[in-house]
Design a protein around this nucleic acid. Sequence first.
DNA 1: GTGAAAGCGCTAACAA
DNA 2: TTGTTAGCGCTTTCAC
Lengths: 335, 335
Amino acid sequence: MVTLKQLAKELNVSISTVSKALNNSEEIGKDTAKRVKELAHLYNYKPNKVALSLKQNKTKTIGVIIPNILNYFLAKVLFGIEREATLQGYNIITCVSNESLEKEKESLQLLANGSVDGFILSVAKETQMKRETEHFNKTIRNGLPIVMFDRVAHDVMCDKVIVDDFESTYNATKRLLAEKRKHIVFITTVDNVSVGKLRERGYNKAISETTTHTPLVLKINTRNNTSKKVKSFLMKHKTIDGVVAADSASGIISINTAVNIGLKVPEDISVIGFGSKSVSYHSIPQLTTIRQHAKKIGSAAAQQLIKRLELKKGASLETSTKIIKTSLIKSKSTL
Amino acid sequence: MVTLKQLAKELNVSISTVSKALNNSEEIGKDTAKRVKELAHLYNYKPNKVALSLKQNKTKTIGVIIPNILNYFLAKVLFGIEREATLQGYNIITCVSNESLEKEKESLQLLANGSVDGFILSVAKETQMKRETEHFNKTIRNGLPIVMFDRVAHDVMCDKVIVDDFESTYNATKRLLAEKRKHIVFITTVDNVSVGKLRERGYNKAISETTTHTPLVLKINTRNNTSKKVKSFLMKHKTIDGVVAADSASGIISINTAVNIGLKVPEDISVIGFGSKSVSYHSIPQLTTIRQHAKKIGSAAAQQLIKRLELKKGASLETSTKIIKTSLIKSKSTL
DNA sequence: GTGAAAGCGCTAACAA
DNA sequence: TTGTTAGCGCTTTCAC
């Protein structure tokens, strides 16, 4: 890598002259500026990012801590963050917490040594269960702002970008009720996590405010037996005519299972699940989905963080909570 | 963030004393060392990463350029890279090329200014089609090593980690032939990309060396009509009794489509597709899959890069190409 | 219009 | 055993 020093030497001028010339300073004579720029271009000079960071005490880098990168929703959010960050001249350093509090703490620690200017993160399950927040607060006190998305720690004072989880399942359930569905089950992969609870509550509210039944919830805790569980559940409760699934896999599996045991979808049973367009193709008929607009969540989080990072010195900005509304996209698995 | 300077001031010693004490230098007196360490611990001192990078001229950061983070396989490789890197004390900066040559170049440029010590990447489709390699070579000439995985540019001299694509489909096809399948179709989402071609050739070879038919290939170019295409194809070619799919979505969709038009899987038709365990649950019966061991690919790539980065000055290391073998995991969609 | 010098936080050769 | 100094690459103030 070429440095200012080398350019200066070759041009027989001082380092500061070169620096100023390249930064279009008014102070520098036209032809000097030209000579400098030409040589810089010839050598493909790029200012050293590390030196710049040290000097300006900011790295133009965002730390992203994600619980699980194999989750399509989270990957999509990451995609949105990356795009927005790149657009605004920021890089992202990605860490995966694997839902572990310990790894979350470590990542925060590790990057809080000047590697990044701030964080975007979704809270690990373990962290939510243990209700730990001190590591977040400490980071913020150290001057590194945090933006949380989706799974947030409500009692940490920071910017947040969330989904209308409660409303989304409330509306989905209402939708099935409007189809005259009588026995609607809520299928969830057990996570004692804010988001999951809210979704269940949305379903509960819709059911209890419209019908006289008790809500019916099927909790599934390991990934691998969803199919079996759903099958035996449907066999046992023959009256089920509607499914609201709290994640995309359950929705897909519900449709395929129902078809497999001879039910007609959506005539006999309607299914709505969370998920994206691409996953909806994994079932026949295609799944009617609740879309979370993951990319939008990512870009909103990045925008908010960068806005805060680029605040003039001394200026302040109230923490905000942005809600990205879900959309219910009708496909073939509902009437 | 606390700095050495502040610690030094508070302790009434020089900066270098503090530095040495914290680095366990032999030169420093025991009790001084102790005092220093205690205060450092109290203030939770962490050496500034940026300053260290500048001083030592290395960042302990790897640039990862991935064509598409929403691709489960690529996300999984990224996961493997992240884990291995973290283990070895490296961070990763992630860029998404979105299959675009231009973005790939930009990312390479952008990070080659001292932000990273080297790169791990999978080549964008556009780059492969245009056969551009100059940006890779330039990066390498500039002293930044590259490790390519999966989609590699064969004529660039660098480390590579690849999959036995040819063999994988060859074996899968052989497997179906051993089941006495007579009419096996190869379904591929069109990409004029090394990997796709190799997989097709593996299928071709197995077919032509075992049967007298011409190979039968169904190419699908847009994501959204796979289901329709497969359906009309199966309706038209009633004799089809085997499917080898070059990606996971096509495998899943083939099974669901076949079932949907009244075929029995695997009795009437056998299906094998690329994919991971979790995606195999998206069909009933479960998809028999070719597993690529994505995490292993990621960790192998990271290991290789770090090995090269930590080479003693002056030492050299021949470029290597590592092949990670796929496994055929039998499930319910084959006999 | 140009250059010298200081300083961002750190390490390490050298001096005391 | 401890401190002084130089330097990594850059920007910026101040002097000429």
